[in-house]
Design a protein around this nucleic acid. Structure first.
Length: 714
RNA sequence: GGGAGAUUAGCUCAGUUGGUAGAGCAACUCGUUUACACCGAGAAGGUCAGAGGUUCGAGUCCUCUAUCUCCCACCA
């Protein structure tokens, strides 16, 4: 017996050297496993792409949970003999990373990105991203992740950029991507558009002001936007206003003087709210914009992109809207137009990353058309025929409704389909610098879109970059060699054949909080671009919260660094604590008590091993069958039943159960009962050999089973 | 406004198709037996939120109620 077993288990001193051994072995690379005869060339495959962590700093416990779950799946399938690929990578996270670096340089040097200029600023961002990347990779290795580092990817590297440009061009040619003046979510603070999903609503207590608008009374929470309102809208069935007809013009006195207003009848009006009459501001409200589109009404800009009032506001022009409100109210009051005000609670839209208050604006931006019909060009989707007229929405719905993709837990299928139902065109252009620049060039009125720039002089590239989720959406296939997959052959080894061998990926394992951001976008991109689902199963994990059940956030300062926990309790204990007791889709709380318990378990395993080795080391134990006592036969049969049970749990994604059963068996059955009873049987020549065989068998198999959960100690 | 989830031992949470309630931590008693005190043995602790229903049998299925959490939409 190795004398290492004489002292308690020390994870810190062993984990790093063990990870090194794994890396040197090359077994995380499926090609090496095939070369060395560990995996059959024609074996089934199992593949996962790692949800790439944002290069905005360090990993948190939530990422550690994700890594633990995925490594468990990957090691399990690799041990089953499947060709197993787990691709590592990181995400440039465009706006998140840019705003983080902007904050850093603002604080440290008092400069903003415009002071530095595009090129110099991007240099800073790249340096920051590189440092974050290195930290994150180190953290992933400390967690014991069996990722194939030879295939590492970055959402903004050259290969992924080629994939982005290729998809953009294809969508542009198909009319799926279009440029147009449409209402978008403008963040005056970040000076960029953001998508609907990047909006965070915050409750605000304010006033609802009632204003006299000719013969009507209208209510508004934002008097500063009302300068240009020249349409007054009511429900066609509202009996209070039957004397007014659609299109009728009336003259009235408004904020800056007399105006002519037009009556509009629209069924979207809620007769119950306020007076049942409202004026509209199509340039700065999504709902009003849609109404204006329906009736072909004029739209006028009131607020500029810095959040300041335009000349239409008369003496208030140039003022920030928040500053102007008071003066505007006074003016309304003095003109006798303000009749009533009451307390009002509503939600205001803010930008997730900058906290800026969103001001809807009509702008010329790039969009992905989710409702445009086109003939489906691929012929390998089980429930969509080649040539069938589809939309991106239909594709996204079809694969989940037909179970081409299984979502675990299944209640999220409803969440997903409901979200698709409400989906609007996706605004993909961003006025930030860090990201994939849009592959479109302009010369006067001419537009040129291609994978490569135009060769003639005089063309200028669109300055905007793409929403970070555009490149993330391609992740399942951009990491597998696409678009250079022309010679990709199933059954042949090497990265050039990855697409044929490993796509669709087997499982996407990620947090339920990014089902819309990412899961849906990957489904959109993959079914459209390569005619395959991106993954066959989606396993959604919950959030890891702090001991008080709060969300981990920077402002609360309650982030636990997994590396600190690994140093204190060992990576194996961290993995067990994260995985056990938490089913898919459920949030969990991280407590040090739980970590301590699994560190003790690691030590228990250590001592079990020490006992078994010291009692079987010098025995003539061979691989061949040993005549077993009835007792030992029963014990082994019981153990084999457990293995079958655990295998079933593993196959049905119930890792939390499998881990708990292993824990319970090893500690409270094997150690507390079987080993205790063996102490009487070992010295007896009649039972010694059988007992030794039985102990050794259970120990070795237990370690194998436990390896997926606790790879280092086992 | 729409939807989802939770409510089980003092605390944190498991409990897969309905069949005698489980784990970790904490607390209690005993034990320092040559794998382990990062241990073992034992005992204690729950009308499984409440009410009704289905069933031979319900924490598990159905209905309603209460409380909490989250997601989506966002009304001038």
């Amino acid at each position: 017996m190795n004398e290492i077993f004489l002292s308690p288990y020390n994870p810190l001193s062993t984990e790093q050297t063990i990870y090194k051994l794994w890396e040197d072995s090359g077994f995380f690379n499926p090609d090496v496993c095939i070369e060395k005869g560990l995996t059959a060339v024609d074996a089934d495959y199992f593949s996962i792409v790692l949800p790439p962590p944002n290069v905005t700093g360090t990993l948190h416990m939530g990422s550690a949970y994700m890594l633990a779950l995925e490594d468990i799946m990957v090691r399990y399938n690799r041990m089953l003999g499947k060709k197993t690929l787990w691709i590592p990578g990181t995400d440039h996270a465009a706006i998140a990373t840019q705003s983080k670096v902007e904050k850093i340089i603002q604080k440290a040097e008092g400069v903003n990105r415009h002071d530095l200029g595009r090129e110099a600023f991007l240099g800073r961002v790249e340096k920051f991203a590189q440092e974050s990347h290195d930290t994150i990779v180190d953290q992933m290795k400390k967690m014991g992740c069996s990722l194939d580092w030879s295939r590492e990817a970055f959402t903004l590297d050259e290969k992924r950029n080629l994939a982005v440009r290729t998809v953009f061009k294809k969508m542009y040619d198909d009319g799926i991507i279009y440029r147009g003046h449409r209402i978008v979510n403008w963040d005056p603070k970040g000076q960029t558009t953001i998508s609907d999903d990047e909006i965070v609503y915050q409750e605000e207590k304010t006033k609802l002001y009632y204003l006299t608008y000719g013969p009507f009374t209208i209510a508004t929470a934002r008097p500063e936007t009302k300068f240009g309102d020249k349409y007054v809208v009511m429900h066609p069935d509202d009996t209070r206003y039957t004397q007014y007809s659609h299109g009728e013009q009336i003259s009235l006195e408004w904020i800056s003087g007399p105006i002519t207003a037009t009556i509009i009848k629209d069924e979207s009006i809620d007769m119950e709210f306020g007076t049942g009459v409202m004026t509209i501001t199509p340039w700065h409200s999504v709902v009003d914009f849609e109404m204006a589109e329906r009736h072909n009404l004029d739209k006028e800009q009131i607020i500029d992109k810095y959040g300041k009032l335009l000349p239409i506001a008369g003496e208030f022009a140039g003022m920030k809207i928040a500053d102007a409100r008071k003066g505007i109210l006074e003016k309304l009051k003095s003109k006798g137009l303000l009749t009533k005000e009451e307390d009002y609670v509503h939600n205001i839209a803010t930008a997730e990353r900058t906290g800026g208050i969103i001001e809807p604006q009509i702008m010329n931006q790039w969009f992905i058309h989710v409702n445009k019909e086109f003939p489906y060009p691929h012929d390998n989707m089980p429930h969509v025929q080649k040539g069938e007229m589809v939309t991106l929405k239909k594709l996204m719905l079809s694969v989940v409704e037909n179970n081409d993709i299984e979502i675990i837990p299944d209640r999220f299928e409803k969440v997903y389909t409901h979200w698709i139902g409400n989906l609007r065109d996706w605004c993909i252009s961003r006025q930030i610098w860090y990201g994939h620049q849009i592959p479109v060039w302009y010369k006067g009125d001419e537009i040129y879109c291609d994978v490569t720039p135009p060769t003639e002089p005089g063309w200028e590239q669109d300055a905007d970059t793409l929403d970070t989720w555009f490149s993330s959406g391609l992740w399942s296939f951009s990491t597998l060699g696409w678009p250079n997959t022309g010679n990709s052959v199933k059954g042949k080894t090497g990265p050039e054949n990855d697409f044929a061998n490993y796509h669709p990926t087997t499982v996407l394992e990620t947090g339920y909080d990014i089902i819309f951001f990412w899961v849906a976008r990957m489904i959109l991109m993959s079914t459209y671009t390569v005619g395959q689902v991106p993954f066959q199963h989606v396993y959604l994990h919950g959030l890891v919260r702090d001991t008080q059940g709060r969300k981990i956030s920077k402002s609360l300062g309650n982030n636990i660094d997994p590396v600190d926990m690994i140093e204190k309790y060992g990576a194996d204990a961290v993995r067990m604590a994260l995985v056990i007791g938490t089913g898919p889709g459920n949030d969990s709380k991280m407590s040090e008590d739980k970590l301590k318990a699994y560190k003790h378990f690691a030590n228990k395993i250590w001592n079990i091993t020490r006992f078994v080795l010291s009692n079987t080391d010098n025995s003539p134990l061979q691989k061949q069958e040993v005549p077993l006592t009835d007792t030992d036969q029963t014990l082994l049969a019981e153990f084999k039943t457990l293995i079958a049970d655990i295998k079933q749990d593993m196959d049905t994604y119930r890792f939390y159960l499998a881990g708990e059963k292993l824990y319970g068996y090893i500690w409270h059955r094997f150690a507390d009962v079987i080993i205790e009873e063996s102490k009487a049987k070992l010295p007896d020549p009649a039972t010694a050999v059988s007992t030794q065989y039985m102990l050794r068998y259970i120990l070795e198999k237990s370690l194998v089973l436990l390896h997926t959960f606790m790879p280092f100690i086992t």
